[in-house]
Structure formats: C-alpha cells, structure tokens
Computed example of a mutant assay.
Amino acid sequence: MPHRGITVTNADELAGLLRNDASFVECTFDGGSFAELSVDTLDLTDCSLQKADFSQLVCGELHVSRCDLRRADFYRADIKESHFTDSNCASARFPNAKLNLSRLIDCDFSLCSFDGASLFGADLTGSRFRAVSFGTANIDGATVDRVSFVMASVAHKSFRKQRLTGVDFSEADLSGCDFTDAVFEDCRIENTIVSPETSFTGADLRGARLSNLRLDIARSRGVVI
C-alpha cells in the first residue's frame, strides 16, 4: 500500500519507508534533507516537495506526478529516464543533473537552473521553461512540442532539421542557435535575440508567427517565409 498523507523530513526516514513501499500519495517533503540518497524506485503523486534537498540523488526509476517542487534542489542528481508530469517545478535547481531520456511533460520549469545538465533525448512536450538559462545544458535530440521558451536563453543549442510544433520562442535568446532546415508549425518567434552565428539556413518559417526577427543579422540563405 502506498504511503498516504505523511510528512517526511530526512533521508534516513525516507529510506526506512521505502523498504515497505516506494509510492507516496499526498505526502509532504517540504524543506527536507535527502541529499545523496540512493534508491531504486521513488513514486510521488500529489506531494509537496517545496525547498526539499534532493541534491546528488541517485534513483533508477523516479516518477513525479501532480507535485509541487518549487525551489527543490536536484543538483547533480542522477535521475535518467525519470518521469515528471503535470508538476510545478518553478525555481527548482537541476544544475549538472543527469536527465537523459527523461519525460518532462506538461510541467512548469520557469526560472529553473539547468546549467550543465544533460537532457539528451528528453521529451519536454507541453512544458514551460520561462526565463530559464540553459547555459551549457545538453538538449540534443530533445522533443520540444508545445514548449514555451519565452524569455529563455537557448543560446548555441541545435534544433537542426527538427519539426518544431507549437514552440514559443518569444523574447528568447537565440544567439548562435542552429535552425538549419528546421520546419516551424504554429510557432512564435517574436522579439528574439539573434546573432551572426544564428542559422535559419533552409528553414521553413511559414508556420511561425514572426515579429522583429532580424534575419538580416542571422544566417538565412534559402529560408522560406
């Protein structure tokens, strides 16, 4: 039976509970210290983890659904192939975290830190990354359908040959981004920052709403508008 409606405050307490069941429903982890915890499975539903410290967490199967993770800390967490769904992760920290092949679906990651994180092959469908600076994060091969990058910095990231559907790049920093041969469908590119290294070469922008896009600055040979 899943643990229901309890408060958990530290790693030792959580480890003890996990010996009975890995599922937690409507539980509270707010402000708890769970740093360097290593577990096989952790399943959280309708839980609150505000300001919880999960730095350097190692978890083989992490499932988070409809949870509140505002300002939680996942610094250097190894949570590859994890599932985050319908959760509020605003201002949480994921620097240097391993999120390869994870599913981050319909979540709010506004103002989060992802510098140095690996999101290689992750599915980010429907999530919001408002005002996020991805820095040196690796988002190669990520699925970004219906993602909001409003006011985010995705500088020097590659979207080469991708079909981008419902993506909002409004006011984003696209310096050095590679959109070569990308196809935009129902996207917004308004008041963005571009640089001479930004490439729209061969891109199909007919499905994008454009405003103040300085294609004269970016590489735009063969672009279709």
Score class of each variant (00 low, 15 high):
residue 1 M to Y: 09
residue 2 P to W: 04
residue 3 H to D: 02
residue 6 I to P: 03
residue 11 A to F: 03
residue 12 D to I: 04
residue 15 A to P: 02
residue 15 A to E: 10
residue 19 R to Y: 01
residue 20 N to A: 12
residue 21 D to S: 15
residue 21 D to G: 03
residue 23 S to F: 05
residue 24 F to P: 04
residue 24 F to G: 06
residue 25 V to M: 04
residue 26 E to R: 14
residue 28 T to A: 07
residue 29 F to M: 04
residue 31 G to N: 03
residue 33 S to P: 06
residue 36 E to W: 07
residue 37 L to E: 13
residue 37 L to A: 12
residue 38 S to N: 14
residue 40 D to N: 12
residue 42 L to T: 04
residue 42 L to W: 05
residue 43 D to E: 08
residue 45 T to G: 06
residue 45 T to C: 06
residue 45 T to I: 07
residue 46 D to L: 14
residue 48 S to H: 09
residue 50 Q to G: 03
residue 51 K to M: 11
residue 54 F to S: 01
residue 54 F to T: 04
residue 54 F to Q: 05
residue 56 Q to V: 07
residue 57 L to D: 03
residue 57 L to M: 13
residue 61 E to I: 14
residue 61 E to G: 09
residue 62 L to W: 02
residue 62 L to A: 02
residue 64 V to N: 00
residue 65 S to R: 12
residue 67 C to R: 12
residue 69 L to I: 09
residue 71 R to N: 14
residue 72 A to F: 10
residue 75 Y to R: 14
residue 76 R to V: 06
residue 77 A to I: 13
residue 80 K to I: 07
residue 80 K to W: 03
residue 85 T to C: 06
residue 87 S to W: 08
residue 90 A to L: 08
residue 90 A to R: 11
residue 91 S to E: 15
residue 95 P to C: 09
residue 96 N to H: 14
residue 98 K to N: 15
residue 101 L to F: 12
residue 102 S to I: 07
residue 104 L to E: 00
residue 105 I to T: 15
residue 106 D to G: 01
residue 107 C to V: 13
residue 108 D to T: 10
residue 108 D to W: 12
residue 108 D to P: 03
residue 110 S to F: 10
residue 111 L to F: 15
residue 112 C to A: 12
residue 112 C to G: 11
residue 113 S to I: 10
residue 113 S to Q: 13
residue 114 F to S: 15
residue 114 F to N: 15
residue 116 G to W: 04
residue 117 A to T: 02
residue 118 S to C: 14
residue 118 S to D: 15
residue 119 L to W: 06
residue 121 G to P: 14
residue 122 A to R: 01
residue 122 A to V: 09
residue 122 A to Y: 03
residue 122 A to M: 02
residue 123 D to G: 00
residue 123 D to W: 05
residue 123 D to Q: 12
residue 126 G to T: 11
residue 127 S to D: 01
residue 127 S to K: 03
residue 128 R to E: 14
residue 129 F to Y: 11
residue 129 F to D: 01
residue 131 A to H: 10
residue 132 V to W: 02
residue 136 T to A: 13
residue 141 G to F: 10
residue 143 T to D: 13
residue 144 V to P: 00
residue 146 R to D: 15
residue 148 S to Y: 03
residue 152 A to S: 15
residue 152 A to M: 04
residue 153 S to I: 08
residue 153 S to P: 11
residue 153 S to F: 00
residue 154 V to C: 08
residue 155 A to K: 04
residue 158 S to E: 07
residue 159 F to E: 04
residue 164 L to D: 01
residue 165 T to Y: 00
residue 167 V to T: 11
residue 168 D to L: 06
residue 169 F to L: 06
residue 170 S to D: 13
residue 170 S to Y: 03
residue 171 E to A: 06
residue 171 E to K: 07
residue 171 E to C: 10
residue 172 A to Q: 00
residue 172 A to L: 04
residue 173 D to M: 05
residue 178 D to R: 11
residue 181 D to K: 12
residue 181 D to H: 13
residue 182 A to D: 08
residue 182 A to G: 10
residue 183 V to P: 01
residue 183 V to I: 15
residue 187 C to A: 00
residue 188 R to D: 09
residue 194 V to Y: 05
residue 195 S to A: 10
residue 198 T to G: 07
residue 198 T to W: 03
residue 199 S to K: 06
residue 200 F to E: 05
residue 202 G to H: 00
residue 203 A to H: 10
residue 204 D to P: 06
residue 206 R to L: 11
residue 209 R to M: 11
residue 212 N to S: 07
residue 213 L to D: 11
residue 213 L to Y: 00
residue 213 L to G: 09
residue 215 L to D: 13
residue 216 D to K: 00
residue 216 D to I: 05
residue 217 I to K: 09
residue 218 A to I: 01
